Computed example of a mutant assay.
Amino acid sequence: MGTDDRIQVIERVFQGEADEWHQLARRYQTRYDEMLGELVSRVRVPSGARILDLGCGSGVLAEIMLERFPDSQVTLLDLSSNMIAAAERRLERFGSRASFVEGRFEDMPEGPFDAVVSTLALHHLGTDEEKRTQYARILGSLTPGGSFWQGEYVLSSSPEDSELNEDAWADWLRTKDFSEEEVLQLRERVGHNDRPAPLVDQLRWLDELGFTRVDCTWRYIKFAVFGGHAPGRPNS
């Protein structure tokens, strides 16, 4: 399957799941709320901050950001028009503090941003070079000292350990009352649609590109919170 075909499949999937995505994510992904809490705890922004949420889904992370930083503005970007519509409904109470862009990651709105955040999104980029290029875009969009944090699906350092993590994830799904057929379908979906990269490689890319204070602050099975800061005086 070519990259464009795979992206079209991903778009169709998320178009169909938009209205229930915030519930599905909690079933699919281990310790989802714990991951979000850790990510948000790492973000430090000044008063009147501009924040970008890449691959915003139905707006769950953006909602937390808008509540945590009450004078901030959050721009949400997603490929799926249905996800954008779901996010607009979720964030209606925030008025003009939330703005929405339908497009691919490569079509990032113009910064500068005090923080860029993302959850379960950038693993859809097809190659390592595409991920590195996206990280470079993110760094270039940040204010001095601004930060980038994401909660992501990652691989381990070896294929053997990555496969063990996939098995552990399947076991976790069974504890959430997924049937064997559903577990198989989810594993096939991941295999067809997702292109995760090893965590150690991604941390190295961030460092090589010029991010500072690069770190992984949370990990459980195959999901991790990691990121870094743009050079300059940090926001905190």
Rank of each mutant, 00 (worst) to 15 (best):
M1H: 11
G2S: 14
D4G: 00
D5Y: 06
R6N: 09
E11P: 02
F14S: 07
H22Q: 11
H22F: 00
R27F: 11
Y28A: 10
T30W: 02
E34T: 08
L36G: 06
G37I: 05
S41W: 08
V43K: 01
S47Q: 10
G48E: 07
G48S: 07
G48L: 09
A49Y: 08
R50Y: 00
I51M: 13
I51N: 09
L52I: 10
L52E: 10
D53S: 11
G55Q: 04
G55I: 04
C56P: 04
S58E: 12
V60P: 01
L61C: 08
L61R: 02
L61H: 03
E63S: 08
I64K: 05
I64P: 00
M65S: 07
M65D: 08
M65K: 00
L66K: 03
R68V: 14
S72M: 05
L76W: 01
S81F: 05
S81W: 07
S81R: 14
S81P: 00
N82K: 12
N82D: 11
M83I: 09
A85K: 14
A85P: 04
R90S: 06
S99Q: 15
F100N: 03
V101N: 02
E102Q: 15
E106A: 15
P112S: 10
P112D: 08
A115Q: 06
V117P: 01
H124T: 00
G126Y: 11
D128Y: 03
E129R: 13
K131Y: 00
R132V: 13
R132W: 02
Q134Y: 05
Q134G: 13
Y135P: 00
G140E: 06
L142D: 07
T143N: 13
P144W: 04
G146L: 04
G146C: 05
F148Y: 14
F148E: 01
W149C: 03
Q150I: 03
Q150D: 01
Q150Y: 05
Q150C: 15
E152R: 08
V154C: 09
S157W: 00
P159D: 08
P159T: 10
E160S: 13
S162R: 03
S162W: 04
N165E: 14
N165F: 09
W169V: 02
S179R: 08
E180P: 02
E181A: 15
E182K: 15
L186G: 00
V190H: 13
G191H: 10
G191Y: 03
D194H: 12
P196S: 09
L199V: 02
D201V: 11
D201S: 12
R204Q: 13
W205D: 14
L206A: 05
L206I: 06
D207P: 00
E208W: 03
F211S: 03
T212S: 07
T212Y: 02
D215N: 12
F226E: 01
F226T: 01
F226K: 05
F226P: 05
G227T: 06
P231S: 07
G232F: 06
R233K: 10
R233D: 13
R233A: 12
R233I: 06
P234Y: 13
N235E: 05
S236V: 10
